[in-house]
Write a protein that binds this DNA or RNA. Structure first.
Lengths: 205, 205
DNA sequence: GACGGTGAGACACCCGGCGTCTTATCGTCT
DNA sequence: AGACGATAAGACGCCGGGTGTCTCACCGTC
């Protein structure tokens, strides 16, 4: 029942942000929308506004990562898995209506959240979501490194699209991955080779 | 050039209200949108926020009344003129997107503006817009009375639609006008009779 | 009857928007 | 060039209202 209250308040917060913007909504607004008193809200989210926003960001990020992970089911090898993550994540980001609105209204705020303040959280959550998947193909340390790298790359190319790579296109993502992520011999042909990299420092125990 | 500034600021105000709502927008927001400093805004609208809102309400009302008056061009008699005003005004009110938004978000605010605070202004402006037209058919005093009555009736039936009359339909409006506004003998047939009412107290001097 | 959860409200704090004023700067006109 | 009006930028005090915390009363459950 406590989780229900949390979800209720977070839903209300999301609605208030959509209606009035992040900097204009009010705790009282959220309470009205969630049909609860301020005391209850502060009891569920000690610290108030900042805690609330942080919890909402975490929840939104979790549903985002869940969506991405759903599209990696049939991945057969490491390259395929990574490419799928990149394409799905990129197109999801591009089609996020609320994100577009916020990018138009307050680009600085979004950029900060995606490049400075938010990166540790994003990397942490993405790690818990995708490391187990990557560990099917590489060892743990390599998986951790890859997740962090991919998070940073996807975010960067989303915020400032390159004319060279469009990660919503699987071919572009694959080219990029072969060249800069799983960099074996750059003459690798198009045959689907599940080659591990030559940099594996520790074999799985 | 001063009028240009006024229009610029009022446009900006309208945009800010659409984006953030009447109670959430800020003078600084308007200045940003209007590309002027706060000093300039306060010089153009002494008294600040309230003066600004009042000026915007007047301007919006003026464009509304202008629109209504545009649709009364071919009016041949008094009944036709009044019916046209009622139908056009009602459907204009119903199709006003911003008004609908505000009615959904803050019904009390809109109702107050349309029934208490705003009525004197609306009656005053509507009088200057429509009295000359009505004076083609009735004397001045009767015209003043009619305009005020029609304003109140249209507003009331817009805010709380009746199952009996839908003033967007010309027939309903005509029925109402014959029965309660230009009340001659209630057995009046459908022939377009330009009868003045029997209640004319003062003949034109 | 004890207890956890909730609503309602009081309280002090303080941020930020408001309205006013002053100063510097720019363009225009004489 | 000099005078003048309009504007931008900023400082200033004021104050409303949002914030975060606390207390108390109430309700349903066990």
């Amino acid at each position: 029942m406590a989780g229900d209250l949390e979800a209720q308040v977070l839903d209300a917060t999301k609605g208030c942000i959509e209606r009035w913007g992040v900097e204009r909504f009010t705790i009282a607004d959220v309470c009205r929308a969630a049909c609860c008193s301020r005391a209850t809200l502060y009891r569920a989210f000690p610290g108030g506004r900042e805690t609330l926003l942080e919890a909402l960001r975490v929840r939104e990020l979790e549903t985002f990562l869940t969506t991405v992970r759903l599209h990696t089911d049939g991945a057969t090898d490491l390259e395929d898995l990574i490419v799928r993550c990149m394409t799905v994540a990129t197109s999801e980001l591009r089609h996020d209506e609320q994100l577009a609105t916020m990018l138009a209204a307050a680009p600085g705020e979004v950029a900060t959240q995606l490049t400075v303040d938010g990166v540790p959280r994003i990397v942490r959550l993405a790690t818990t979501y995708f490391t187990p998947l990557l560990e099917q193909f590489v060892d743990r340390d390599r998986a951790l490194e890859l997740v962090e790298l991919l998070v940073r790359v996807v975010i960067s190319y989303f915020l400032s699209p390159s004319s060279r790579y469009d990660f919503a296109r699987a071919e572009d993502a694959r080219d990029f991955v072969r060249l800069h992520v799983l960099s074996t011999t750059p003459t690798a042909s198009t045959t689907s080779n599940t080659t591990n990299t030559t940099h594996d420092r520790s074999t799985r125990p």
